[in-house]
Design a protein around this nucleic acid. Structure first.
Lengths: 371, 371
DNA sequence: CTGTTAGCGCTTTCAT
DNA sequence: ATGAAAGCGCTAACAG
């Protein structure tokens, strides 16, 4: 007989401490279910004494809200606004909206009425106008995909006054007090990109960095942070690569052609390319049509077009920032907050996924398989 | 007034087709709720006519099972067996078990009785013995973490005879008919590792590959596939690196010291290192204590020890294969199958995550934030 | 302010 | 074989 270890654990409902229910809490606190429910949902109309006694019990026992069970009898309707940059199919913001929708499907029994507002993220005036409109809308909560700092701060101030909770996706904005934010750490993102690109190119290779330009404002906060992370890495590691900052215009796409041609004519050796926004595929296409080969390239975001370019081998690494996850959890968190008023974790940094043509096929979005 | 686009979509319960319930189906089919339920759960005692008429309705409408709602009134108890290699804290199989536990917590209202059996994955006799024991156990379903092919095939045959459904995690086994499997594509994994390591080392650098040796059997299927992917990449890309295959003994760890010393004495230039099992940290430690520096290293799996070594910079890339996700979905899928008999997707390949010291902190396991 | 009660969608028991 | 009815844990309306 060989030595062996056959741990045999019985688990779940049987040996675990039995699940505690509202009625259990009610009994322990010497009140009725109704009163416990009032306390749990902050509905008021509860005597100080009753509240105290219930809260005491709640501290002792480990009651777990089950939003799914609650939701079947929930009658409240929630008006939730979503304000983000415009959504085009297969692109970054579409994934965020996907995640939001997915949360609504998972909590299908919760009555929520969604109002979606979008603005042109490259045009500050569009943002202002949309925000202005939103400020007057009746709502219980709002999920914001911010890009212009000052405008967002103003919007948030008005939300604060009206005591409307808000959650950010994509990036956090300073000088606001959101319930939570779901975002990548953009600085680290840039830092990591620098490490990746320098690891696959010879020393001294020039690196061209593309950043989006915007109407009426400087670069997006996210891009600034990524760029900072990028340059910090190079400095810290005494990299000698020359950095070429190239503007990238989404509003006037015909300019880009020119920037690119100028870039490649000015360089005797082919530079490496880093794209800090999600339009990497545009540059990949330029390289393809102009038969420029052997360019090492790292881009942001798993848009349909970028994924295609990655698979073709035009892009070496694609960095993902879990947009579906951001949207999903922003909405989920908001619903749980609205329903249970339960405290939520404010800082939520998402994964930075590194995708290559080898592992891209296994990347999960909600279209594949759900969370 | 600036041009702007402010799409305003109302959504969810309001404008969407209203959710369809059991009672709706019952009415449409001209039967009672009870009968619909009997059909949905395959409980029998339904006339051919009733069944047909219900199935017809089911084809037309889009009924969505909500396991959470079902579970509050579900009375059946399910006995589920889990059979995997031994679990040590912070290691690969612990994460799989974590995921399984997490699914049970999410579906806390479903009564499941879990029995966990483990065996020594490096000792075929231990596996045989454990499987033998399992074969006699009364159960409704089993989740298997297979390592020895033939033994698993035998176990599965017996399960097939008893009509007990089984799901694999970690890897699929040929010549069996599981309900589903959740696994990385190990071949692609090895292929990707080859690409990564060669991208960060000079041409001609030798590469040492560590594989676990086992008692009474050849290498694990997973390792063989990874190695195949690895060598295929090198061949396909005409890489000239010399490959040094080094055995790695988990059962006799004192041997490894010797293998390593021999390796580094035989090499004039420091080789790169690839570890195809999850014990990379062991080699990282050896390098540290022996003051060997500048080694490029890629290892499998986000064990606590490997993560530490990654953060210290001893490991360059760590490849993750979503063990929590595997366990979670194996159990979730099994429960949904048991409860609703609903057909499930058989092939489920998980993500291959590339982790560096930059993005490791954002990696989500269930300890962090849940799916 | 608080207990009671009806009811959410679903499963299961119990007559028929 | 089938419908009616009770009950799961929870919320919300209703008396008091």
């Amino acid at each position: 007989m060989h030595e062996h270890k056959c741990i045999k654990i019985k688990s779940n409902f049987s040996s675990m401490r039995k699940k505690i229910r509202i009625i259990d809490i009610a009994k322990m606190a010497g009140v009725s279910k109704g009163t416990v429910d009032r306390v749990m949902h902050n509905r008021g109309n509860v005597s100080e004494a009753a509240r105290k006694s219930i809260e005491k019990v709640l501290e002792q026992v480990n009651y777990k809200h089950n939003i799914h069970v609650s939701s079947i009898s929930l009658k409240s309707r929630y008006k939730i606004v979503v304000a983000t940059p415009e959504v085009s199919p297969g692109a970054y913001w579409a994934s965020i909206h996907n995640g939001i929708q997915h949360a609504l499907e998972e909590y299908e029994n919760v009555r929520v009425e969604l109002q979606v507002f979008t603005y042109n993220q490259y045009d500050i005036y569009s943002c202002r106008e949309t925000y202005e409109q939103i400020a007057g809308v009746e709502m219980d909560a709002i999920i914001i995909g911010p890009t212009f700092k000052e405008e967002t701060v103003n919007l948030c101030k008005r939300m604060d006054e009206r005591e409307i909770p808000y959650i950010f996706v994509d990036s956090n904005i300073e000088d606001t007090s959101p319930l939570a934010f779901f975002s990548a750490d953009h600085y680290v993102c840039g830092y990591m990109i620098a490490k990746l690109i320098t690891s696959i190119i010879p020393d001294h290779t020039n690196i061209a960095i593309f950043q989006a330009v915007r109407t009426g404002d400087r670069s997006a906060n996210t891009t600034i942070l990524r760029k900072k992370g990028f340059t910090d890495y190079l400095e810290k590691n005494k990299c000698t690569n020359l950095i070429l900052s190239i503007p990238f215009s989404v509003m006037e796409p015909e300019d880009n052609e020119m920037y690119l041609t100028r870039l490649f004519h000015s360089q005797k050796d082919i530079p490496a390319i880093v794209v800090l926004n999600s339009r990497g595929n545009f540059i990949a296409n330029y390289l393809e049509t102009n038969l420029i080969e052997g360019v090492k390239m790292i881009c942001m975001d798993l848009t349909t077009a970028n994924i295609e370019a990655l698979k073709k081998g035009q892009i070496d690494y694609l960095i993902g920032q879990e947009p579906e996850y951001q949207g999903f959890y922003a909405m989920k968190t908001m619903l749980e907050y609205l329903i249970f008023k339960k405290p939520v974790q404010k800082q939520n940094y998402v994964q930075l996924d590194i995708l290559t043509r080898e592992n891209i096929d296994f990347y999960k979005s909600f279209n594949n398989i759900m969370y």
